[in-house]
Amino acid sequence: MTSIPSIESPWLVADIGGTNARFGVVTEPGGRPHQVKSLTGADYPDLASAIETYMATTSGVGRPTVGGVAVAGPVSGDRFRLTNASWDFSVNATKQALSFRHLALINDFSALALAVPYLDHNAVVPLGGGERNTDLPVAVIGPGTGLGVSGIVPHQGMWIPLATEGGHVTLPVETDLEAQIAALLRRRFGRVSAETVLCGVGLTRLYHCIAAIRGAESVIISPADVCARGRSGADPICVETLQVFCAMLGNFAGNVALTVGARGGVLIGGGILPRMRDVLQHSEFRARFENKAPMTGYVSAISTELIIADSPALLGAAQWITQWLAQELTPTTSEGALV
């Protein structure tokens, strides 16, 4: 049974990360989410209670019976657990608790990737390379609470999202300083993944490592403090931390481009980089992205862009519902779940 969103029967869309849970409603076919609000995930025991709280704040719309939820973690089957938070729930039980007819889950970065074809020039900041082309595979990465990686592949007028856990690959290291950083982190964590460094708390880890290597005194500092002190130039260790972070992210992004074959473009999302876009634009990000000999010519033609739009994964979640219902896909696949 198909469902067309309307004011009387909207679609609920959500983007559930390790820290924040963002919600919106879609009230017309192809419409963009509105009445967008953000809740702190830790304030709620589960997805259903957070949705109920959000719905109590909406006005002028009916109660949804169809939902599309982007979640930070791998999606397969009925059971889902957030990778970097405590929510652990049954998709079917949640659907029943909310009296929904359909509830579609998808990885949050797969949802972000599905939003890419709908991002206009005001939603992104160019970081070098050619023009984005969604007729070719596109990759999306993003440091936030964790490190997300996904992409889309065009197929018969639609886009197929790639469900990956690429943030958990081994951290790419290129310079002597980065090798020293990795060695320090290895003593603490054993294996060092890309997400160990290229995420919010990774900024703090990177700051302490660089301070130790430089013989400088370090203090307990939040990722936001690292950003603020680095952008202002008030702390040279923070300045270097941001530069190393951007360089390593460029290296990682180039690896993703080669692995996915993302000739249509690589976009950077997540909650960290929009707050330090000036640093990113003047960093080694693009140089390290292209430093992939003998494939430098291949990656140098690929566009890189920073996504600055608010809550774009909500748009991708709506697109996911559309594709599920239009194609009458099977109840579960490796890319997501619909019940």
Rank of each mutant, 00 (worst) to 15 (best):
M1A: 08
S3I: 08
P5H: 00
S6G: 04
S6P: 03
I7Q: 09
E8T: 13
W11T: 13
V13D: 06
I16C: 10
G17C: 10
A21I: 04
V26I: 14
E28K: 07
P33A: 14
P33K: 02
V36E: 09
V36A: 04
K37W: 00
T40F: 08
D46W: 03
D46L: 08
A48E: 10
A48I: 08
E52R: 06
T57V: 03
S59A: 14
R63T: 14
R63A: 07
T65P: 01
V69M: 11
A70F: 04
D78L: 08
R79K: 01
R79I: 04
F80Y: 06
F80Q: 02
W87Y: 04
F89Q: 10
V91M: 11
V91P: 06
A93Q: 14
T94R: 05
T94Q: 07
T94M: 12
Q96Y: 02
A97I: 06
S99F: 03
F100M: 15
F100S: 12
L103W: 07
L103Q: 09
L112H: 03
L114A: 05
N122W: 00
L127I: 13
G129A: 04
N133W: 03
A139W: 00
V140F: 06
I141E: 07
I141P: 07
P143D: 09
G146T: 04
L147H: 04
G148Y: 05
P154K: 05
I160S: 05
L162T: 10
H168E: 07
P172Q: 03
E174D: 08
L177W: 00
A182P: 02
A182W: 04
A183F: 05
L184N: 07
R187N: 12
R188T: 15
F189C: 13
G190R: 05
R191E: 14
E195C: 11
L198R: 05
L198I: 15
L203P: 12
L206T: 12
A211Y: 02
A211V: 11
I213A: 07
E217Y: 01
E217K: 03
I220W: 02
I221E: 08
I221D: 03
S222V: 12
P223Q: 06
D225W: 00
V226W: 02
A228D: 10
R229N: 09
G233W: 04
D235E: 12
C246D: 12
M248G: 08
M248V: 13
L249K: 05
N251S: 08
A253I: 13
G261K: 07
A262M: 09
A262W: 03
A262L: 09
V266H: 01
I268W: 03
G271A: 06
M276A: 10
D278P: 02
V279I: 15
V279P: 11
L280A: 10
H282I: 13
F285N: 10
A287Y: 00
N291R: 04
N291K: 01
M295Y: 11
G297M: 09
Y298H: 07
Y298I: 15
S300V: 08
A301P: 02
T304I: 11
L306T: 11
I307H: 03
I308H: 01
I308G: 06
D310M: 07
D310C: 07
A313Y: 02
A313E: 13
A313T: 10
L315V: 11
A318G: 09
A318K: 01
W320S: 14
T322F: 00
A326M: 08
Q327T: 14
T330A: 15
T330I: 15
G336H: 09
